[in-house]
Design a protein around this nucleic acid. Sequence first.
DNA 1: CTGTGTGAAGGAGTTCACAGCG
DNA 2: CGCTGTGAACTCCTTCACACAG
Lengths: 212, 212
Amino acid sequence: MSQKSIPGIAINRLSLYLRVLDEQVKYNVDVISSQELSKITGFSAGQIRKDLAYFGAFGTRGNGYNTMYLRDRILNIIGLHKKIRVIVAGAGEMGKAIIRQSIEENSYINIVGVFDSDPQLIGERITDLEVIDAARMTEYVAKENIKVAIIATPPEIAQNTAEQLVKGGIASILNLAQIRLQVPEDIYLHNTDLAVEIQSVIYYSSKIEHVG
Amino acid sequence: MSQKSIPGIAINRLSLYLRVLDEQVKYNVDVISSQELSKITGFSAGQIRKDLAYFGAFGTRGNGYNTMYLRDRILNIIGLHKKIRVIVAGAGEMGKAIIRQSIEENSYINIVGVFDSDPQLIGERITDLEVIDAARMTEYVAKENIKVAIIATPPEIAQNTAEQLVKGGIASILNLAQIRLQVPEDIYLHNTDLAVEIQSVIYYSSKIEHVG
DNA sequence: CTGTGTGAAGGAGTTCACAGCG
DNA sequence: CGCTGTGAACTCCTTCACACAG
């Protein structure tokens, strides 16, 4: 099952191709070339072809890619066709932002539960989800067989939250808390640290005065 | 001023070293080795030394790095010592989350303005900031000479927002909206797309069943 | 003798250019 | 002929191993 040497970032790009394909399908465009995808996404046409070729030959030579077919292929590659259930730990502003964005702007992300330990938040509704007591999270993950979780808690409790998720049998975590987490080797952990991203942007703000 | 071939990701790691150094200074640790930094951050000791070496020789051989000195050097490298002013476009949940995180958890990010076009939000306070009418953003950026902005608007208005920022003279943008933006070449643009990150985590959730 | 600083080797990801299929 | 699919070249980043300073 281990495809040899697929760049991790290629998966991120597939998500972006998917978004473009959704639009094209909506506008009744049947076929799109790597050249056109390149113009829209900003990635090179060669890279797009290579990304797709990692997983198979989805296009028609001399013609391009069928938008509906390619979209379907990408959904299958990422695993979105299975509508995998995702939970969010933390119902603060970051948790709410994630849930709203996912529900309002992305039909492929299926968030089924939100947890928080703040009694003020428990029971509150975020879109159509009711915030559940975080004390019940481990049990929920185990019982419902949840494999993907997003940590959007304050940094102080993020490690403990991760441990509860692991205890419940989680496979994969997106950590949005501003702290490095320790998890067993067989758990996939991806950190997205917005403070780090901001600081990186600050760094470049002084480096690129009129290039060229 | 163009340092030769510094990996972009190295800057992100510097931000993380900075966070560790802050903690160590707080606990009155005077000296830290690349080995110890490695244990805390999870990056290899060699990589840490190399990252630092891109910018100079900050350690003492046989001893390690002075925590306060190294922290100061990193602040200077990233440009955080100048307390560069940052604005946020969009006062929805994502905007609020960013502002709260920055103000409560990160003393190096200096957010000075928030903008939104929703009359319901204009005038509302987020921590100590009052939401300003988005119609005044371009003028504000120009007048106050703001160089760094975060876009946290709905995707539909993100491109227009970017254009207003550019018109005002922005240098560098962190885009959190779920859309690809077009900006002039001399503007540094970094996209962090949480939907893409989630989908990537979903992809790996089915790929890494008990590695090894 | 410890831990930094660094060239050199290795690996990962991207670009190039073209062969090959429709 | 056009555009995909792909090996080979190239660039970028990481790891390695050791010289060297304190």
